[in-house]
């Protein structure tokens, strides 16, 4: 028997604290697999956010720090500048990156910091009970928009990769989805390019991953993945928005 796939070594034996069917675990595995493939596990520092993935350092066995809410990119800037030989990445959700931490993120991108950002977008604040986030779709019901998000009152969903791609200093910006095996394979390719961008010292890289939140969307995990395909992907299309010269 030949092994086709095996759980990466750097995924710890502690079971995750996420709800059943939460794609955070898929993103964790992609990160762990790539770090192992690229032999980066020992020199990686992951900056974890506030949100559901706040305990991420229990689940991926690399060096880690925990940032204040939204400040992961600012913290990663400091780490990368003092330890330029380390591989520094942040792992953030949409409430963390797109709402409270948007200033840190945009400025880190504008400065062209040589860090990698993994951005998980599930369209609400999962940990605190499903409140409306900047990425909530128009008409989506959340606990703070019980009649559906009204654009006249709360604006439109925020497209972070498209926005950051307009900045000159960014090197690699892409959006992937975690709803099906095909999209997960594609997400891994995008993530590998983003990691390579940092390893080759080109500049700032970000990969957004469209994710689900079965608990707060009040769906089964399978229905939530179907909703991503039917409702979320038309608004947040998959693709690479900026590929600087030299990114491979």
């Amino acid at each position: 028997m030949k092994t086709v796939y095996k759980k990466p070594e750097s995924i710890t034996n502690k079971p995750t604290t996420y709800c059943p069917g939460c794609p955070h675990g898929i993103a964790h595995r992609l990160v762990a697999e790539l770090l192992e493939e690229m032999n980066l596990t020992r020199e990686t520092v992951i900056v974890w956010p506030v949100g559901c993935s706040v305990f991420g350092y229990y689940f991926i066995g690399t060096d880690a720090v925990e940032a204040a809410h939204g400040r992961a990119c600012a913290m990663a800037t400091g780490i990368k500048r003092t330890h330029p030989e380390s591989f520094v990445m942040t792992y953030q959700g949409d409430g963390d990156l797109a709402s409270i931490g948007i200033a840190e993120t945009v400025h880190a991108a504008a400065r062209g910091e040589k860090i990698t950002v993994v951005y998980i977008n599930n369209g609400n604040y999962g940990m605190t009970g499903g409140q409306m986030a900047p990425t909530t779709l128009i008409g989506q019901k959340t606990t703070t928009s019980p009649y559906g998000r009204d654009p006249k009152l709360t604006g439109f969903p925020m497209h972070v990769p498209e926005m950051l791609a307009t900045l000159e200093a960014t090197a690699y910006i892409a959006r992937a989805a975690l709803d099906s095996p095909q999209h997960i394979i594609q997400a891994k390719k995008f993530l590998k390019k983003a990691f390579n961008t940092q390893v080759n010292g080109i500049g700032f890289s970000l990969v957004e991953m469209i994710s689900s939140c079965p608990t707060n969307w009040k769906m089964t995990p399978v229905e939530a993945m179907e909703r991503i395909r039917q409702e979320v992907l038309p608004v947040f299309p998959i693709g690479e928005f900026k590929v600087a010269e030299g990114v491979e």
Partner: peptide
């Protein structure tokens, strides 16, 4: 058929290994 789709989508790394016969 050892395609590994279950491994790829599993959020909890509960599919520990997928093997294909030689």
């Amino acid at each position: 058929i050892s395609c590994g789709f279950c491994y790829l989508i599993c959020p909890d790394a509960a599919i520990a290994e997928v093997r294909r016969p030689e």
